[in-house]
Design a protein around this nucleic acid. Structure first.
Lengths: 228, 228
DNA sequence: GCAAAAGTGTTCCAGATACACCCATGT
DNA sequence: ACATGGGTGTATCTGGAACACTTTTGC
């Protein structure tokens, strides 16, 4: 235990460690997947875990989450949102650790995760087929998944998981994968178009022995949804 | 700065302090109010602030919130839910402090806050007429208020702000105060009764020169809503 | 009998759902 | 010509919002 310090007004008892963890969702191979690292360091060396790590004493929580994601997976520039704070006293064997979990969405094709720092390996894993996870990370993923489903009823959420220009069928696939159910094509298209969030690019996309699809884009691609 | 320690796997860099803060809502004098303490200790001695304080190294976040509420205001037994974690690097002048905010609801008539511990005074304050608050507590209150409004569309939230047996008019008043708008009596009553969350007690309540009101109670009073 | 809050039904609108066929293209 | 996914319209249901009068009581 630390001794009380003479620093004015400073709390004199032991401080827990604070970390951030990141759940990064993507859609890949028609499945909802998350990014995991294989831990290169003890404890739980060799286990799969969420990217994340200790807070620097002068950085914000969100900066920490972004930095750890970048350091461990090479991925940066994703908009992360705070999810929940996990603090069970026994959740980490090292010492008392409070973890502020963040989540984000990204289209997988633009991202090339590369292991670095504390990670000996990095990979996407289907949310429905996850390996055993270190610490309480399975709980964290669970909560993040439920939040994502809720968040999807703001349609612009789905745009973050898709390339900037897309067909309505591709967009519908994103919804169907996350909601894990089939949607009616006509109703889906009407709903999307009625929201006035989409515009036609004029281009179309021809894929096989069938009619080409119109390509759309989001009208306000920079829209950041604040939904604390 | 602390020196790296020899403890196995322990993070060797300075740890922030972790606190919890509590926003406790009630309805009193036909207004939505929150519980504030006047700080007895520096920093910000004499300012109004949310009850809260430092996390003990082996207690859960929720236990900490409950303990601090109890220590500073004498109030216990309220169900608290995590709100959000605030961690701006400069939000506390003492040192780096991460605060995990919690909120809860309680009927004011059963509670008698009494100052203790770090508080030299405790009082309810109308949300629409708050004093200047210490630290970033105004932001925290703001977010809590918005969350409460959202949470209200699960009607059972309102039951937490009212005595166990109540008339529909009293319940409607709770909604009107939180939503800050008038509701239609017929629509409100139909909506409440259609949900099948209420049952008649058989009793009625006579109040003045008019027809007495039926008294209802919640069908499942112990229902704890988990809405992370 | 009058003042005051309790109690009660119907209409309307918007958004969600269910449902089946023609269109444009590649082979 | 046929196989394949793209594209379209209508009927129905459901939940929310608007709206005014009768009932029961105390004085």
């Amino acid at each position: 235990m630390r001794k009380p310090q003479p620093f004015p007004y400073r709390y004199a008892y032991p401080h827990p460690a604070v970390t951030t963890d990141v759940i990064l969702f993507t859609i890949k191979d028609a499945q909802l997947q998350i990014l995991l690292i294989r831990r290169a360091q003890p404890p739980m060396q060799g286990s799969w875990a969420l990217p994340g790590g200790f807070l620097n004493i002068d950085e914000s929580l969100e900066d920490c989450a972004n930095r750890e994601l970048q350091e461990e997976t090479g991925i940066s520039g994703v908009h992360l949102e705070q999810l929940y704070t996990f603090g069970r006293p026994d959740r980490d064997p090292r010492e008392r650790v409070i973890s502020v979990a963040h989540y984000g969405l990204a289209p997988s094709d633009k991202l090339s995760p590369t292991p670095a720092s504390d990670a000996q390996d990095v990979n996407w894993h289907p949310i429905n087929d996850l390996p055993e996870l270190a610490f309480d990370h399975a709980d964290i993923v669970n909560l993040a998944h439920r939040r994502l489903v809720k968040k999807l009823d703001d349609a612009s959420t789905a745009f973050q998981l898709i390339h900037p220009e897309f067909t309505l069928s591709e967009l519908q696939a994103v919804f169907e994968i996350i909601l894990n159910k089939r949607l009616d094509k006509r109703n889906f298209r009407r709903r999307m178009l009625d929201m006035e969030l989409l515009e036609e690019t004029g281009k179309s996309f021809s894929n096989g022995n069938h009619r080409p699809a119109k390509i759309y884009r989001s009208k306000n691609p920079e829209r950041v949804v604040i939904l604390k």
